[in-house]
Design a protein around this nucleic acid. Structure first.
Length: 807
RNA sequence: GCCGGAGUGGCGGAAUGGCAGACGCGCUGGACUCAAAAUCCAGUAUCCUCAAAGAUGUGUGGGUUCAAGUCCCACCUCCGGCACCA
């Protein structure tokens, strides 16, 4: 027999819904402290919820329920990142409109989430696919355009023939599409780009302002990839062309024995000697055909070709040969490098392959081999800077270059501009038309630009989106001039909608603005943002970027959107492997709820281990917490009849109060520290203790139920009702622990001899060191260790431990 | 290769430099039962022992300290991320 969770849970879910228990008022209450807890909203896939979703959601739900009891005004919303490829793929296969599929999946997700008892304010639900939502996504795009942060460019993009679309760099993993694992090649196409690089410095610097895991901050720093160096201008022998290179080691300029241009470099055409022309062309074509995979994975052997021209080293006037090689990337720096084979691994490997000269210009201070030395040392063979340390040499040579007009100090970033268009149907249309071939943004009152109905969702295959195949939509007129115009047929990537959803939750129905300024000021920033580490760079970088643009537009009041970030760890299958359909180790939360109830699901998700840790699922473990909830129920209720037990009542003894307040202290502290696993174990200890009591004081049971309520809210509400309360406990004050109740009249002091535990003494609280020492010496096991030896030193940590150092 | 994180019983895990293994799972024994399930009670790191006592023990090797899972140095393994960014 177990407690009737299958009756209790739907009962309280209906109650919360009917009474709008978790409705957050529309008008901010500036008299109360706010708490904004946000979950990374899910993509509503056809597979439904898996047990990974409720992990983070349960954590934030516990915090929110706790904060409400602490008197905070809590914002805890949920919505749907509902644009995306799978619904469109399904549409291509079946002809079902992505809107239908998406709606069905959202309904399923919502039902599943509600069955877990999360305290979301469902009146704030949004989906990125709602017209009322994406009109503001488009509106923000217009802001970006206005500020010159959105532009079109003909860029080599990652073209995936199988998906019929281009992909962002981050959607390409090892030269294959992240979704589906299809091969990806490079192809130049006209694309919308967002100038995220203009914000690189702020995106880097403002990481200091947020309370995020170091690992995530570090990943973002690496992604941004700031490096300081210099641009150096090289003249070319027999030409008036100049080649500019970027280097972080201007101090090694004397060691530059050749130069390398990327195969896409603009000056190749002009500089190549006639006799090298055909060979260079062949190399360029071969490089263009290579996918990213081939360029990186098959990099063991460096390739390249001499173009038959010479650059002049500005420091010594030497001629150095100009090569092209695909180990130099077109998209970074100037797409050209000076090669210093003695002090750069890649240049060294290249020089070895092609037998190019190596010249040492940095001497390591520890006497190790200077060839291949890439660290800081002392400049040698470099007349302008000989004897200087690397940092000083960099400064001096850069200053010299600047004075001579041959170079300039320069900061470069690995971060590239964000490729922002997709050749897809199921995404936000761009609020842009083309008049006489020129792009023209629509005015805000033209929004939203709605997705048209189509009969086929297939990409055109030429790289254009299905929207290009609908003439009635494609052809329009410029509202300003009445001239014929064409619509932009690309759509935005899935990241767009998730870049600002946290703002819309604050004011989800505002018809006149993305968010009301007063409400934004009250609720922002997000106090706690919980989600998976897979969004460490992309989503979190993109939304920080948009947020900063909105900050510059005066639309938001904080520099950063997410004050505190926590990544929940992945939940593995029982076999310790990543859950996947093919392994057959996927756990469905619906099954867990059916068998053990939502409260057990919530509790187990939190009891498995630390929130951030990767940990395997165990159905036995679910049974364990289920047994705990049964014990908690039986503490107060007759399992057969459900009636409150006569044992509930009476005055609390001091031991009972100590057990209670110990638990309350631990649970409160642990919730604040997001240590839910140990909070639960403290409640388990309490029930283990309390079930021995013949009298279970009513007030103690009240307090226990309140402490349990953020974790197992359905059971807690039910017990709260049984205990005679008529209102929901959701806004009851959190039970405070009383430090005075924690004290005992005796204490147990472990006794060590030479650091090893030899015994324990129990003495009254406050006993002085001398008395404890005497008691310890009276212990047989301690005595045995002391016989024949003398005590050199006594260490007493008050109330904690006694250590005797003897020889 | 570089950057993060982690290594503790049979398993998940717990420990402000101060009793290693809380809590849960599993297992063993007992109570209840005609029996089983459920529930309750006791035990459960390893070695040696009837037991007590003792010895050993937090990836490996050193070090600091009265005292180290915790701090320092070197290394090994696993996980995550990045990876020709000049």
């Amino acid at each position: 027999m177990s407690y009737p969770f299958s009756q209790i849970e739907p009962k309280w879910q209906a109650f919360w819904q009917k009474n709008k228990t978790f409705r957050t008022p529309d008008q901010p209450d500036s008299g109360r402290q706010k708490f904004y807890a946000l979950d990374m909203f899910p993509y509503p896939s056809g597979a439904g919820l898996h047990v990974g979703h409720p992990e983070g959601y349960t954590a934030t739900d516990i915090i929110c329920r706790y904060k409400r009891m602490k008197g905070f005004n809590v914002l805890h919303p949920m919505g749907w990142d509902a644009f995306g490829l799978p619904a469109e793929q399904y549409a291509i296969e079946t002809g079902t409109h992505p809107r239908e599929t998406t709606q069905r999946n959202i309904d399923r997700f919502r039902a599943q989430l509600q069955a877990i008892g999360f305290s979301y304010d469902w009146d704030r639900e949004i989906a990125t696919t709602d017209e009322d939502y994406y009109r503001w996504t488009q509106w923000i795009f217009l802001k970006l355009y206005e500020k010159g942060l959105a532009y079109q460019a003909e860029v080599p993009v990652n073209w995936c023939p199988a998906l019929g679309t281009v992909l962002a760099n981050e959607e390409v993993v090892d030269g294959k599409s992240e979704r589906g694992g299809h091969p990806v090649i490079r192809k130049p196409m006209r694309q919308w780009m967002l100038r995220i690089t203009a914000y690189a410095e702020r995106l880097l610097a403002d990481l200091e302002l947020v309370d995020w895991p170091d690992s995530i901050k570090e990943m973002q720093r690496n992604w941004i990839g700031r490096s300081e160096g210099a641009e150096v201008t090289f003249a070319v022998r027999g030409s008036d062309a100049k080649v500019v290179v970027f280097t972080t080691r201007p101090d090694t300029l004397y060691g530059a024995t050749y130069m390398v241009l990327s195969p896409e470099h603009a000056l190749i055409e002009q500089l190549t000697a006639p006799e090298q022309r055909s060979a260079v062309k062949a190399y360029q074509e071969a490089a263009a055909r290579k996918s990213d995979l081939e360029r990186t994975e098959l990099q063991k052997e460096k390739t390249g070709i001499f173009i038959g021209a010479y650059a002049i080293n500005p420091v010594n006037g030497e001629d150095i040969p100009i090569w092209i090689a695909d180990y130099v990337l077109a998209g970074y720096g100037t797409g050209a490098i000076m090669a210093v084979p003695a002090h750069d691994e890649r240049d060294g490997a290249f020089a070895q392959t092609f037998n190019l000269p190596v010249r040492v210009v940095v001497q390591p201070t520890d006497g190790s081999d200077p060839v291949g030395f890439v660290g800081d040392g002392i400049a040698v063979n470099s007349p302008l800077i000989d004897g200087l340390s690397t940092p000083d040499a960099k400064k001096k040579i850069t200053a010299w270059l600047e004075a001579e007009g041959l170079g300039v100090a320069r900061v470069n970033y690995k971060l590239r501009d964000w490729l922002f268009s997709r050749q897809r149907y199921w995404g936000e249309p761009f609020p842009v038309i083309f008049v006489d071939g020129e792009p023209k943004p629509l005015s805000p009152d033209q929004l939203p630009v709605r997705l048209p109905e189509v009969s086929s969702y297939k990409p055109s295959g030429t790289g254009e989106s299905p929207l290009a195949t609908i003439p009635e939509w494609l052809n329009t007129t410029d509202p300003a001039t009445g001239k014929p115009a064409l619509r932009e047929t690309n759509t935005m990537p899935q990241w767009a909608g998730s870049c600002w959803y946290y703002l819309r939750f604050i004011d989800p129905k505002n018809p006149g603005a993305p968010v009301d300024p007063a409400k934004e000021k009250y609720w922002m920033p997000v106090d706690l943002y919980v989600g998976g580490a897979e969004h460490a760079v992309l989503h979190l970088l993109y939304s920080r970027f948009w947020h900063k643009v909105l900050f510059d537009c005066g639309i938001v009041s904080t520099k950063e959107p997410f004050q505190r970030l926590v990544n929940q760890g992945m939940i593995l299958g029982e076999d310790n492997q990543k859950m996947s359909k093919s392994r057959g180790n996927v756990v469905n939360p619906d099954d867990v709820i059916r068998e053990y109830g939502a409260d057990s699901l919530r509790l187990y998700e939190m009891f498995m281990g630390p929130l951030e840790a990767v940990k395997p699922w165990s159905m036995r473990g679910v049974e364990g917490v289920f047994r705990f909830l049964n014990r908690a129920y039986r503490l107060m209720c007759d399992e057969e009849t459900g009636a409150l037990l006569p044992a509930v009542g009476g005055d609390a003894t001091s031991e009972q109060l100590r057990a209670l307040h110990q638990m309350l202290m631990k649970v409160g502290d642990d919730i604040e520290g997001l240590r839910f696993n140990t909070a639960i174990s403290a409640m388990m200890e309490f029930t283990n203790e309390a079930q021995k009591w013949t009298q279970r004081p009513h007030a103690a049971m009240d307090a226990f139920v309140l402490a349990l309520s953020p974790f197992a809210p359905h059971l807690a509400e039910e017990l709260w009702e049984k205990l005679g309360h008529s209102n929901s406990l959701a806004y009851e004050p959190w039970p405070k622990y009383d430090p005075a109740r924690l004290v005992s009249d005796t204490m147990e002091i472990p006794v060590q001899v030479n650091g090893k535990l030899r015994g324990k003494v129990i003495v009254p609280v406050g006993t002085a060191q001398e008395a404890i020492l005497a008691a310890a010496q009276g212990e047989a096991s301690v005595q045995a260790q002391l016989s024949g030896k003398s005590i050199r030193k006594v260490i007493y940590v008050p109330g904690r431990l006694l250590n005797l150092v003897v020889t």
